[in-house]
């Protein structure tokens, strides 16, 4: 589904990714762990199409297509979803109408009929109840005045509504208390399926107690230094990132 080959990228002339290789097959959940500054968020933003990154070598293919040549909205319509580490607050845009616009934009691109207001509310209700998101939150402007946990749950709600084929979650576990973490993990697990892939980017292994990954990769200095099974996460938790370099 996703193939990253020898990816080199820099921001403002500073090299951040230095030959990153990663293959994420359909149906699998992979975790990328790494210390601060290792390039985790750069990788997430590059995959989603944010401007400001210069790819100096290598490339990314998604479902056989050159991902980096696609506009951000095209990537989203083709099934890529990034849960932001810091969701953007957008005053004046009500959350509920944003969700409907996004879902219908993606459905339109996939050749599916548009939801009308009533249909959409029905779908929305089922998913938001599951995540413990209230009506008041949906009436507020997008992410404005949301607590850290509410923002993360809103990201997961968006993910469930957009039904991505490849979900990239950038530190979705950070800043969550244990109850919120469980809810978010349940949301992610609900998405797991044989024709989807999930990339969990995280600093800590605690999310991986709830969403068990097929593979764990360690990112340091802008490249994958080590890969292993789920037990690698526990090892990192005990020993830290120091000394994990192969």
């Amino acid at each position: 589904m996703l193939q990253i080959k020898n990816l080199h990228a820099s921001v403002g002339g500073k090299a951040i990714l230095n030959g990153l290789d990663l293959t994420l097959p359909k149906g699998e959940v992979h975790a990328i762990m790494g210390p601060n500054g290792s390039g985790k968020s750069t990788l997430a933003f590059l995959l989603a199409g944010r401007e400001g990154y210069e790819v100096t070598a290598g490339g990314v293919t998604y479902e056989g297509r050159d991902l980096l040549a696609m506009a951000p909205e095209e990537r989203a319509r083709e099934g890529l979803f990034l849960a932001f580490q810091y969701p953007i607050e957008i005053p004046g845009v009500p959350t509920a109408s944003f969700l409907k616009t996004a879902v219908n934009a993606v459905r339109k691109a996939r050749g599916l009929p548009q939801y009308d207001a009533v249909e959409f509310l029905k779908i929305l209700k089922a998913k938001r109840d599951f995540l413990g998101i209230g009506d008041d939150m949906l009436r507020r402007a997008l992410n404005v005045g949301f607590s850290g946990g509410e923002k993360k749950r809103a990201e997961v709600l968006q993910m469930l509504l957009l039904e991505p084929r490849l979900a990239v979650l950038d530190e979705t576990d950070s800043g969550l208390d244990i109850d919120a973490l469980r809810i978010v993990a349940e949301g992610i697990n609900a998405l797991r399926s044989p024709d989807r892939a999930i990339l969990l980017i995280t600093h800590y292994q605690r999310l991986l107690d709830y969403v068990v990954p097929d593979r764990v990769h360690v990112l340091t200095g802008g490249r994958i230094e080590r890969s292993g099974g789920k037990e690698l996460a526990q090892e990192l938790e005990r020993q830290g990132y120091v000394g994990t370099a192969a």
Partner: peptide, 14 residues
């Protein structure tokens, strides 16, 4: 630019 990117990352055209 960040707000626009966020919307585009959800499939909404520029």
């Amino acid at each position: 630019a960040d707000a626009l990117f966020y919307l585009r990352a959800r499939g909404i055209g520029a």
